[in-house]
Design a protein around this nucleic acid. Structure first.
Lengths: 251, 251
DNA sequence: TAGTGGTCTAGACCACCTA
DNA sequence: AGGTGGTCTAGACCACTAT
């Protein structure tokens, strides 16, 4: 059962992304929305709070809410798996394993996964789609100890994170993320249905157990325009730093 | 006059950071807090929602809230200005203003900068280089009240952040960042010396004063390969608790 | 089973914006 | 001056947790 406010947020989000409300345009007042959705003002406020947290709308006391943009944004404050994030945004997400095979870890993989070079790893190539459109290409290397559980998953498994939790009780924590832009290679272009050389948003990450044991190392490439990462920060602490590109050669 | 819920959030935050509640310990129930602060449950919920957004506490339906950490570093990040970061990394950084003019804020700009539509803003196009190579194109919109200070800077000012601090005592905090990949447009390509359509890493951000007053809204485009954003979800400070609730299927 | 957080309602007053 | 969002109250029911 979906919460009432989540449903309202979803409808408004769709309307914004569909273009019913232009960027810069006003949203209906809370009172109007309450009438339209037959809900109380409190529930409507919960709904628009969701949109505000997603950066879709802004507000100023006394004036109507303004549409700020129409793009999906993925917040790092709550890093969920792709499937979980997509579903929470009301998207229809599908996935498909294109390739899966074991091999020996090379030196870089071994270092990232805290293994010895030559230890077995499982390499998986997975394509994921939103609303049937391919948007994300994942090249993941799993540590050998988790490989059997991953191999037992169906090829069209929607959420690997969730399946591994339910199957073997594995909980993922997230370690370090590297984010940059790259040009689509030949394989990228073919699988994501874009032209070769077109922009992709790349996220490379290590996932660990909550105890810090590395589980996977992944190179995820998003089609440009399909998703946006969102980060909040202040002058106090620093999870986010820039690094020079040539220090980290790509895979 | 601060809001009631903000005051309650502040008291709870101080108690947590002071160590009245250990990491992993339970917070009093909403009902208890409502009695203690002589407020309604709704107001208490607003207060703890603030702490949850800061990553200080987590919650699961049916169980009491848990203290996750003592520092706001969880969901908050520090981001230095480009010049400060580059110099700290030992790079030779230069910058140049290519365009600068005042105009009226449109609806979206006004909302982002907490201005009224039509208020004056200052639009600046700035190109920045590392070791003489152009790597970053900044399209910035400054709120009108800071425009005179910005206009008084030399066109080749190395660090705007530092200059504004030394000139008018303005301290920047950072708000929300949106990161994605885009294709270089004609102007982008010419100024960054790349081919049109080639990948750029785009960062859009709002900068505010520490009090939360918006100062600028900027669209920064980095040449692919020149920089990488790195984000650490400090696993150590994040004691296991949270994920279990999140991983359960929500619908 | 009792307690707790998640959700929702139907009011209310205020500060602020628009006209 | 009237509309709007920001805040607050005092209830209510439900799903889930803990015991």
């Amino acid at each position: 059962m979906t919460a009432r406010y989540a449903g309202i947020a979803g409808e408004l989000r769709e309307a914004i992304m569909r273009g019913d409300y232009d960027v810069g345009a006003q949203l209906p007042s809370e009172a109007e929305l309450a009438v339209r959705f037959a809900a109380s003002r409190g529930t409507v406020r919960q709904a628009v709070a969701v949109l505000a947290a997603e950066g879709l709308v802004g507000s100023r006391q006394g004036a109507r809410r303004i549409v700020l943009g129409r793009e999906r944004s993925q917040s790092f404050a709550e890093l969920h798996s792709f499937a979980q994030w997509a579903r929470s945004m009301g998207h229809r997400v599908t996935g498909r394993v294109l390739e899966q095979r074991r091999r020996a870890a090379d030196a870089a993989e071994a270092a990232r996964l805290a293994l010895r070079p030559g230890d077995a790893v499982l390499r998986v190539l997975r394509l994921r789609s939103l609303e049937g459109e391919p948007v994300l290409l994942e090249r993941t290397v799993y540590a050998g100890w988790i490989a059997p559980a991953v191999e037992s998953l169906p090829a069209d498994c929607e959420s690997v994170t969730q399946a591994l939790y339910e199957g073997v009780g594995l909980v993922f924590a997230y370690g370090e993320h590297l984010i940059d832009a790259v040009a689509a290679g030949t394989e990228d272009a073919r699988l994501l249905s874009v032209r070769r050389g077109s922009p992709l948003l790349r996220q490379r990450r290590v996932t660990t157990t909550p105890e810090g044991r590395p589980v996977e190392w992944s190179d995820d490439r998003y089609r440009a325009g399909s998703v946006t990462f969102s980060i909040r920060n202040s002058v106090d602490a620093n999870p986010l730093v820039r690094q020079v590109g040539d220090l980290r050669p790509s895979s």
